[in-house]
Nucleic acid binder design. Structure first.
Length: 256
DNA sequence: ATGTCAAGAAGATCTTGA
């Protein structure tokens, strides 16, 4: 079973790329981020025609997450995180699918830092940690897949110096991510590729793709029971180099 | 030093948020 996290950076602009990916790779479960689409304009018919059921949590203009399943309809468990009633960003969607609990996560970017956006990022990470703790306590097989907007370690970025002041690799962001993983989650990419330098994102600017100047910010965190079933994990880099590509590549884990 | 993209609101470009 192939489970994918894919920040599409606009599902309308990326629909040809997404449908092509579904057809070519036939992933079983796909967590999408940055739909940049309202609930009403989500291209449900096109995705269903490609053989996928979907649940989505849209927002006009930015954010937005979805869970897709091949030949099945994901069943929604929760949209949004508890703990901040005034938070109206569409960044968390949790579903039951194929016997797994699967969450699609679009963690706040947090730039510029310091500032209110970075404070929001850290608060959101604490709220995510509470939800993740509850999932582990319930002992459900779970996958938390998404764009975490966190570069976990120095070997997860092409240049520590270039990104030193970025919200994605501040000590606070890293500590929160480390604490989340330490609850008992397995970072699928890192466990399968311990040597690092596995990029999931390349900026559109400054020829980052051509220079392979990327970083690793899309992560699949596996609960213990799912981690026991992990076969392989990787990045479908090829899709980053195609016409009208997202700045993220599909990132995946293969589960027995 | 920095070479981009998508969407929305306005209005034939600018702002926001990556």
């Amino acid at each position: 079973m192939k489970i994918v996290s894919y920040n599409v950076n606009g599902i309308k602009a990326r629909l040809p790329r997404l449908l092509e990916y579904l057809t070519e790779q036939q992933p079983d479960i796909v967590c999408l981020q940055e739909l940049k689409s309202s609930d009403e304009t989500f291209p449900e018919a096109d995705i269903r025609a490609a053989g996928y059921g979907a649940v989505w949590h849209g927002q006009k203009g930015f954010n937005g997450v979805a869970v897709l399943a091949r030949g099945a309809d994901p069943v929604e468990r929760q949209r949004g995180l508890d703990g901040e009633v005034e938070d109206d960003h569409s960044r968390y969607l949790e579903c039951d699918v194929d016997g797994l609990v699967v969450a699609s996560i679009y963690l706040p970017n947090g730039n510029p830092q310091p500032g209110p956006k970075f404070d929001y990022k850290l608060r959101w990470m604490e709220r995510l940690a509470q939800r993740a703790r509850a999932l582990l306590a319930a002992e459900v097989p779970a996958v938390l897949a998404g764009d975490y907007n966190v570069i976990p370690n120095d070997d997860d970025v092409y240049s520590v110096q270039a990104m030193a002041d970025d919200a994605l690799m501040q000590p606070g962001s890293r500590a929160a991510y480390r604490a989340l993983v330490a609850q008992g989650w397995t970072d699928a990419l890192r466990i399968r590729h311990p040597q690092g330098r596995v990029w999931t994102f390349w900026d559109y600017q400054a020829g980052a793709w051509q220079r392979d100047a990327g970083f690793r910010i899309d992560h699949l965190l596996l609960s213990p029971a799912v981690a026991d079933r992990l076969v392989e994990a990787g990045v479908d880099r090829d899709y980053r180099g195609r016409e009208k590509a997202s700045d993220h590549a599909p990132t995946w884990a293969q589960i027995r």
